[in-house]
Structures are given as structure tokens and as C-alpha cells.
Simulated assay, not measured.
Amino acid sequence: MLDRRYVARTDAQGFYSFAQVAAGPHELELIQDNLPLPWSSAGAASQRTEVRVRDTVSVDFPVQKER
């Protein structure tokens, strides 16, 4: 979730994107309840990032498969 307003789903490889994000600070949040079982978050569930004009930013959320 981007800035608690926009939602994106991952593709089969776990990639996601938000098109046309305004420059400036943003917060990305991993909604753990939406992870398929048996996966869970292996780190922080939210991350802040800065988007610069005409730039691409990559943010990763580590997940792990529960045993």
C-alpha cells in the first residue's frame, strides 16, 4: 500500500509497481494479512522512501516461507 491510499498486487515473481507517483516522501506498507499461506513477513512491514523527479525507486519487503 502506498501512502495508505493506493494498493498494488504482486505478479507471479513478486514484483509490483505504482505508476505516476508524485515526487517527494512516501510510505510503503506490506499488508501481511494478504500474504498467501505459508508466507509471512521477515522484516519491517513498512518503509519510507523518497521519490525524485523522473526517477525509479525500488523497495523490497523480505518474506519467508513458514515451516
Rank of each mutant, 00 (worst) to 15 (best):
M1S: 08
L2T: 00
L2H: 09
D3S: 10
D3G: 14
R4I: 06
R4L: 01
R4S: 10
R4Y: 04
R5N: 15
R5E: 15
R5K: 15
R5V: 13
R5W: 02
Y6E: 02
V7Q: 13
V7Y: 13
V7G: 03
A8L: 07
R9M: 04
R9C: 07
R9E: 14
T10P: 05
T10M: 06
D11G: 00
D11A: 08
D11H: 03
Q13W: 08
F15I: 01
F15P: 04
Y16S: 05
Y16D: 01
S17W: 11
S17K: 13
S17T: 14
S17E: 09
F18S: 02
A19Q: 12
A19I: 03
A19F: 08
A22K: 15
A22P: 13
A22Q: 14
A22V: 10
A22R: 15
A22M: 08
A23I: 02
G24N: 07
G24Q: 08
G24L: 07
G24A: 04
P25Q: 11
P25F: 08
H26R: 02
L28R: 12
L28D: 02
L28A: 13
L28C: 03
E29C: 12
E29D: 04
E29V: 14
L30N: 04
L30E: 02
I31Y: 01
I31T: 00
Q32P: 08
Q32A: 09
D33I: 03
D33K: 07
D33M: 01
D33Q: 07
D33L: 07
N34Y: 13
N34E: 07
N34K: 12
N34S: 14
L35Y: 02
L35R: 14
P36V: 06
P36W: 08
P36I: 00
L37D: 14
P38T: 06
S40M: 01
S40G: 06
S40H: 00
S40N: 00
S41D: 03
S41H: 11
A42Q: 10
G43F: 03
G43T: 05
G43A: 05
A44I: 04
A44F: 01
A44M: 05
A44L: 12
A45I: 09
A45N: 11
S46T: 10
S46E: 06
S46R: 14
S46F: 11
S46L: 02
S46V: 05
Q47S: 12
Q47C: 03
R48D: 09
R48W: 10
R48T: 15
V51W: 03
V51G: 01
R52S: 15
R52Q: 15
V53Q: 11
V53Y: 10
R54L: 04
R54D: 05
R54Q: 07
D55Q: 12
D55Y: 05
V57L: 06
V57S: 04
V57W: 07
S58M: 07
V59G: 06
D60A: 09
P62D: 00
P62H: 09
V63M: 00
V63G: 01
K65F: 05
K65N: 06
K65A: 04
E66N: 14
E66V: 09
E66R: 10
R67Q: 10
